[in-house]
Design a protein around this nucleic acid. Structure first.
Length: 582
RNA sequence: GGUCCCGUGGUGCAGUUUGGAGUGCACGCCGGCCUGUCAAGCCGGAGGCCGCGGGUUCAAAUCCCGUCGGGACCGCCA
C-alpha cells in the first residue's frame, strides 16, 4: 500500500516514484490548479504538490503517489527535515474523509488537557506524544538490553494475586468462582520476585505493570510501569551497579551520552541538607543548621529541638510583603508553628518581624551561617527536627526549583535509609520504613537483639539503618530497593519488633516464609519507575505526557468513561451488592 | 480528608479587581479570490445557556453560596 514513510524522504530519493499514506496536516491552496499538502505519518511530514483541484480537508486520510524532486531553488524549507524535496505530479486517493478535529493538532497551541484526553487518539497524532512514546519505547528497549547483557532473565508474574495488607491500598478483583473472595492487583511483583530467587532463577527482571489505589499526582498514576529487578548472591553495591547500568543505557539512547552519577548521599545527609529523601541537587538553597546558635536564646519561638534556615539569593528584592506573609501561611499549612522571614538590607542590617527579639550576636550568627548578603531572604523554622526538615524542604522546592528540563541529569543514590521511620503512638512499636523483609545494616544488626530478647530503646530503634537505597533523579524518586532478609532468625526478630506475631506473619506472608525454609539464597533487588524516568528524559513535568492513555487526577478516563457501572447480572454472578451512596 | 488555581463561540485567550446590552483578539470552520506556498495570503460569513444550580441587585461573565469538571500541592503512596 505504501513504499515509503513521509519523513524519511530526502535528496537521495530524488527521481523515485513513491507511494505515501498519511493524514493531511496542512494545505495551502493557490486557486484551482495548484495546492501544497503537508502529509503526515509517524515519521514526520513531507510536502506534496497537487496540480489541479482536490477537495482535501484537515486530517483526511489519503494515499499519494508521485515523484520525489528537489524543490525549486529558493523554496526549500530548512525548518522541515524533508524540506529540500517535495513529491510532485501527485495523484491523491482519499482513503477516509474526516471531520474537522475538535482542537488543532499543530504543536503551536496548548490544548486543555481534558480535551486532549477525551480525544486521546487525536492527541496521539501530535508531535509531542509521538516523540515521547517513541522515546519511551527506546528506553524500554535499552533497559531490556542492558539487563539481559548483565545476565538477567525476563519473567512474567501474575496480575491476579492475593491481597497483602501492608503498603498501598490494593485494587481488588472479585472472584466469580469463589464469590465473596477477591484477588488483588499487584502493587509490585515483590513477593514473586523473591520466590523466583528461592526458585533458583538467580537474576530476574521484568518491566512490570504495578497498580496502587492511591491519590494521583503529576508523577503518580494508578497504574505504572517499573523495571523490577532481583538477584541472588549479590550485595547492595552489585544491585546498584546493575541498575545504574540500566538507567545510564536508557539515558544514553536519549541524550547520546552517559551522564555521571553524583556521590552517594546517606539518608541522614539528604534530610539534613535538603529536607528531602529525594533531593533535587540542581540548585543550592540548602538547609543551614542554626540549632546551636539558639541553644540559650531568650526568644521563645527559637527555643526548639531544631532550628534551621534556608537562604534565597535576592529573594527579599523579588518578593513583596504579601508574598512573604503567604509563605508564612503556607508553612503553617504544612504543619510548622510559624515561619520567620528575614531580609538583609543594603547596610547589612537584618529586617524581620522578630528582629527585636533577637540579640546582636544571634542576628549576626544567622547572617554568617547562611552566608546571606544584601537583598537575600532568609527563612527560619524552629520545631521538632523532622518537621523543620520537611517544611524547609518543601519551601526550598517551592522557591527555587528549576523547570524539569533545565540543569541536566543529576542521578544519585540515597543510601542507609532508617529501618524504622517512627514509633507508633498506639502500639509503642516501630513503624517500618520499607517492607518488613528489608535487611538491617550489618553495623546495626546486633543492636536490634535476637528473638525473645527485650525490645531496644526507641533511640536505638530509630537510629538503626537498613540496607535500603533509593535512586533519585532531579528531585524525583525513580525507585527503591533493598537487600532482603534471608535468615530466619533475623526475619523473626523484625516481625517481633514490628509486633507481627508468628501466626499473623504466617497468615500474611506464610508462603514466602515457607519458601525460605527450603534454602533461600542471599538476595537483593530494586525497582524503578519507567514513567518517571521517561518523563524526565523527555523534559516533561508530568508522567501523563509519556503514557498513551492516562487517567485524570480523579482517576477517570474521559475517553472511555472508566470507571463505569456494571450491570446487575455481573454483580449477581460475583456475589456483590452495591451500597447506596451516602 | 485538606489548601490553592482554572472553567467565556470548535481551539487558545482578554474581559471578572471597580456589576451596566455577549464587547474583543488570534487560530480554526464555511464561501469567494489566488500557479511556489510552508503556522501561505487577501475579502466576506457563520458560530455563545460566559460549566451547572441557587442567591444578592433595577441590572451578574463579573459579587456571594453550593455543585460538577480539569490542574498543582499537603496528607496518602511499606
Amino acid at each position: 500500500m505504501r513504499s515509503d514513510y513521509c519523513g524519511d524522504l530526502g535528496v537521495d530519493d530524488v527521481g523515485r516514484k513513491v507511494t505515501l499514506c498519511g493524514w493531511v496536516a496542512r494545505r495551502r491552496e493557490h486557486g484551482a490548479s495548484l495546492a501544497f499538502v503537508d502529509l503526515r505519518d509517524r515519521s514526520g511530514f513531507v510536502q506534496c504538490v497537487v496540480d489541479g483541484a482536490a477537495d482535501l480537508r484537515s486530517e483526511y486520510v489519503v494515499r499519494v503517489t508521485g515523484t520525489v524532486r528537489l524543490r525549486p531553488e529558493g523554496t526549500e524549507n530548512p525548518a522541515l527535515p524533508t524540506g529540500a524535496v517535495e513529491v510532485g505530479q501527485c495523484t491523491v486517493e482519499v482513503l477516509s474523509a474526516a471531520e474537522p478535529p475538535p482542537f488543532p493538532l499543530s504543536e503551536h497551541v496548548d490544548v486543555d488537557e481534558n480535551q486532549r484526553l477525551r480525544y486521546r487518539y487525536l492527541d496521539l497524532r501530535r508531535e509531542r506524544l509521538q516523540r515521547n512514546l517513541r522515546l519511551r519505547a527506546a528506553v524500554n528497549s535499552a533497559v531490556r538490553t542492558a539487563m539481559e547483557r548483565q545476565g538477567f532473565l525476563e519473567l512474567e508474574t501474575p496480575l491476579l494475586i492475593a491481597s497483602t495488607p501492608e503498603g498501598a491500598r490494593d485494587f481488588v478483583v472479585p472472584s466469580r468462582l469463589k464469590p465473596g473472595s477477591f484477588y488483588a492487583l499487584p502493587q509490585s511483583p515483590q513477593l514473586f520476585k523473591q520466590l523466583s530467587m528461592v526458585g533458583g532463577l538467580d537474576r530476574y527482571y521484568q518491566i512490570a505493570r504495578c497498580l496502587r489505589d492511591e491519590d494521583l499526582r503529576a508523577d503518580r498514576q494508578f497504574e505504572f510501569s517499573q523495571l523490577d529487578v532481583e538477584a541472588s548472591f549479590v550485595d547492595a553495591v552489585d544491585i546498584r551497579r546493575f541498575v545504574t547500568e540500566a538507567v545510564l543505557a536508557a539515558a544514553e539512547t536519549v541524550t547520546g551520552e552517559r551522564p555521571s552519577f553524583l556521590p552517594d548521599l546517606t539518608w541522614h545527609e539528604a534530610m539534613e541538607r535538603f529536607g528531602s529523601d529525594k533531593p533535587d541537587v540542581r540548585f543550592g538553597m540548602e538547609l543551614v543548621e542554626l540549632t546551636p546558635l539558639f541553644a540559650s536564646t531568650t526568644f521563645n519561638a527559637f527555643r526548639a529541638p531544631c532550628v534551621k534556615a534556608i537562604r534565597e539569593p535576592q529573594g527579599a528584592v523579588q518578593r513583596s510583603r504579601k508574598q512573604l506573609d503567604d509563605l508564612v501561611e503556607q508553612a503553617k499549612r504544612w504543619g510548622a508553628k510559624g515561619l520567620v522571614w528575614m531580609r538583609v538590607e543594603s547596610d547589612g542590617t537584618v529586617a524581620s518581624p522578630v528582629a527585636k527579639f533577637l540579640d546582636e550576636s544571634e542576628l549576626r550568627g544567622i547572617v554568617e551561617a547562611t552566608g546571606a548578603e544584601a537583598g537575600d531572604l532568609v527563612l527560619v523554622v524552629a520545631d521538632e527536627r523532622p518537621l523543620v526538615r520537611h517544611v524547609l524542604g518543601l519551601l526550598r522546592l517551592n522557591l527555587g526549583r528549576p523547570p524539569v528540563n533545565e540543569g541536566g541529569l543529576h542521578f544519585l543514590w540515597v543510601v542507609d535509609f532508617p529501618l524504622f521511620e517512627g514509633i507508633d503512638p498506639e502500639t509503642g512499636g516501630p513503624v517500618p520504613a520499607h517492607h518488613p523483609f528489608t535487611m538491617p545494616h550489618p553495623d546495626d544488626l546486633a543492636g536490634l537483639g535476637g528473638p525473645g530478647e527485650p525490645v531496644p530503646p526507641a533511640d536505638v530503634l530509630l537510629g538503626a539503618r537498613s540496607q535500603a537505597y533509593d535512586l533519585v533523579l532531579n528531585g524525583w524518586e525513580l525507585g527503591s530497593g533493598s537487600v532482603r532478609i534471608h535468615r530466619r532468625e533475623v526475619q523473626s526478630r523484625i516481625f517481633e519488633l514490628l509486633g507481627i506475631g508468628a501466626e499473623e506473619a504466617q497468615r500474611k506472608f506464610g508462603f514466602l516464609l515457607d519458601a525460605f525454609r527450603y534454602g533461600a539464597p542471599p538476595h537483593a533487588g530494586f525497582a524503578f519507575g519507567i514513567d518517571r524516568l521517561v518523563a524526565l528524559l523527555a523534559g516533561e513535568e508530568n508522567i501523563r505526557e509519556v503514557i498513551a492513555f492516562p487517567k485524570t487526577q480523579s482517576g477517570q478516563d474521559p475517553l472511555t468513561n472508566a470507571p463505569g457501572e456494571i450491570d446487575e447480572r455481573q454483580l449477581r454472578e460475583l456475589g456483590l451488592r452495591v451500597l447506596p451512596r451516602t
